[in-house]
Structures are given as structure tokens and as C-alpha cells.
Design a binder for these strands. Sequence first.
RNA 1: GUGGGAGUAGCUCAACUGGCAGAGCACCGGACUGUGGCUCCGGACGUUGUGGGUUCGAUUCCCAUCUCCCACCCCA
Length: 438
Amino acid sequence: MIKAVRGTRDLLPPETALWNFVEAKAREVFRAYNFQEIRTPVFEETQLFARSVGEETDIVSKEMYTWEDRGRAQSDKGQSLTLRPENTAGVVRAYIEHKLWERGLQKLYYIGPQFRRERPQKGRYRQFYQIGAEVIGPPSAGSESPARDAEVLEMLATFLDRLGITGWTLELNSVGCPNDRALFNEALRKALEPVVAKMCVDCQRRAVTNPLRVFDCKIPEDQPIIDKLPRISQFLNQPCRQHFDEVQAILKATGIPFTLNDRLVRGLDYYTRTAFEFTHGGLGAQNAILGGGRYDGLSESLGGPQAPGIGFAIGEDRLVMSLPQSANAVAPQPDVYIAPLGAGMNREAARLARELRGEDIVTELGDESFRLKKSLETASKMGARFALIVGENEVKAGSFALKNLASGEQTSAPRAELARMIRNSVIASRVQIAPENK
RNA sequence: GUGGGAGUAGCUCAACUGGCAGAGCACCGGACUGUGGCUCCGGACGUUGUGGGUUCGAUUCCCAUCUCCCACCCCA
């Protein structure tokens, strides 16, 4: 049997309804902040990711799906292509390619699959889905303002609240300018030198490869040592510090709760200044539902104009896992099930179905070969509100039997009346795909 | 990439020390020729993840492999 490949999965109904609910809510909330959708290709030139995400990151160094495309002629060498491991690079590439800076501040969101070749585990897949957004533009359009950071964070808080997700935490930090980080990195290396021998093996490795990651250590014995290490906050220059202070001030003004976490470091090279993560318990080791930050130098490093930006990516798979229990996927139910009864009745049933569907009534159609008992059984099993019986008697009389499957009540009505009768009692009480959260 | 756990019917799970692969739910049919839910009766259900090995005999023991789960690494 051929199965979905490792780390990929099928999303089946009724769970897909949950995904649609989440995506519809995202579009609705993002729209209120005047974001518009962008769709970029799922694969790009490998160079794009190498130059933006960072050559040395795990993503680029070992997790990308990369292949060499065929050239024009058989003998031609093709270019190296890669399935996107994240979407910010693609958006910034499009920003540069289409000269979007000519249109002022860009507020763009995307929804789509991303690909990383990692070992799968709960909340981590090789094809996973991200809902993300970017605010990017020339500095003259206000793209660098801390107001943009706060606006994005507030939008995320609103989005999670509107999904009914409770118990999230916003963790906030500033990783400063590249220059601040270089100084900090050096200080960190120096501070680690005398103590690293006493730390866990992972930390000893991190101290060499990526000292920042030492702060991620969860070993209790190492914590006293880590607590004494220098913090990035001590190395922020004046503009970076002011920027960060203002982000916090606006968040307080808008009533968005956050926790400062000066151990929060982001994995990708392009991040500057504001870095954040929304975490949620009950997700296991992968407790981050979303992460993001500012990337003021990204456009230039890709050969574009100066275009500061801030963005985030939500792990949709993880988001769906953190939905409240009340949002359990329920199979949507048809309004009416048409039961053709006896030879030749499929034709009349098809005409009726077409009429009802034309009135936006969700209609399921049985088959004339079914016995009535089976039709009714099928109808109630799928949760239909009504069964419409289409037999010879009805066709002769020009009046059809309409049975309310919940009450058992049965009436008879001419075809012209059917749509109205069904709609009246059905539309208001259609089962919601997921609960409205106040 | 590393370490650990688990794979038996569509689903949830049994099967003692190696001795005929089972139950509940779901599914299909009938009791009931045009009236569902309840009840009763019957039916179908399997390459025990896959491939090898040991054995008279393997779901059970051994090896390999695949997938999922947990953790690490890292990230969404």
C-alpha cells in the first residue's frame, strides 16, 4: 500500500472544517488591520533562502528540500531550487521584484504549506502550514516605527482570543542591531570560557557553535551559571533600547499582556530588534504556536532598497491543536435528504435537488434503488434535518412528503412551497462548524 | 541526525510461558414491499506494518526495515 510519506499527512473531513474556520478567522481579523493577501511560489531559488535565513542555520544547512532543476537543453545545467522552508524570504523577494515600495507601506499576509526535512514528532511535520504576515516598506512610510511592532502583536493577541484560545503567553525580547549582537556574542563567549566546563554537554557544544542558544538550556543545574551570563539587554544601543521601550509602552496602553524574556533568541539570521513568541501549554516540547520579529536589514541583504519590516509565522498545525475542546470538529449536516422511491424517480428527484440547491439549501440525493427504510436511515445518520420523499404518489398528486427527522413530524407540500418551508425552519438552526467565541 | 516506546478488523483494544486471531463500536442485510432512531436475528470483516530468521508450530522469540508517538537537536 502506498502511504503518505513520512512527516506528511492527510487532513480529512470533518477536521478540515476546523482548518477552514481558523483560516477564515485569520482573514477576518487581519482584514480589520488592513492586511491583504499575498501568494508566493512554494519553491524558489535556493540562494534566496541561503542568503536570508542564513547559511549556518539548521534550516538551510540540513533541513531543506533542494534539487537541481533541468536546464533548457538536456545537457544544460539547471538551477538549484528549494521548497520554501518559511515564507518571509519569498515575500521580501516579491517586494523587491515588484518594486512594492512604490506603493507605500505593505501589510501582507499569507497562508500556505512550508517544508522542512526534520524528524517528525507531535506538532512538527515535514509539510506544515503557516499563517503569517509581514509589514514592510520604506522608512518614510513608518515601517521602522515601534507602533508597527505593537500593532502586529496586538493583532495576534486579538486573533488568538477570537479563536477562543486561552492560556497563551506573549514572550518578548529585543535582539538589537547586528552590531549590538556582535558585541554581545563576544562578551558571551568570554563569560562562558571559565564556566563552560561545568555545564552540560549540550551547552558545551552550543558555547562553540552558537553561544546564544545556551539560553535555551533546560537543565536545572546549569541555571545558576546561565543567570550570571551577560544579557542582550545590556548591549542594546540607545536607539534600539528606545524602540523596545516604546513597543512595550504601546502594548501596555492597549492592554496586551506580555512577559519580558531576555533569553528569547530567534533562530534565523535576519532578525533584528523586536523578537517574540506566543507559547501555549499542552503542546508538548513544541510549545511555540507562533514566532516572529523585526528584520530591518533583510531587504538590503537581498539586494533590495532599505525596507525595515516586522512579521510573524503561526504554526497552523499547532494552532489547531490548541483550539478549545468545544471546537471539536463536527461533520456539517445537510438540510434535506431527497429519497427517490421506485423506478424512474431519480429523474424527478434530480430536478427537485437542482431547485433546492439553487436556493442554497444543502441537499443530499439518495437513489431510487434504496428502500424507503434505508433512505430514512441514511438521512438521519448523516444528520439531515428533513427527508423529502419522491415517489409515484407524490408525483401524481404534485405534492411531496416532507419529514422532519428530529420530530418525526411529516407534512405534504407542493413543489413550489418546498424551498421556503425547508429554509424557514432550517437556516436559523444550522449547526455551526465551530463555536463563536466572545 | 541521536536515544526510548508502540504498531493486531474502519475505530478503541484483548489474545497466559510459543499452540485454531477475538470483543465492543462502526458497517451490510433481514425481522418490517412507502417511513429512520429502539430491539432482536444474521453477515462480512485480517498478508497481526513489511521482509527475513529460529521452531513441528510465531501476534508472541531474534534480525532488518517502514511508520507513528515521546524526548534531544532545532523550530512554527
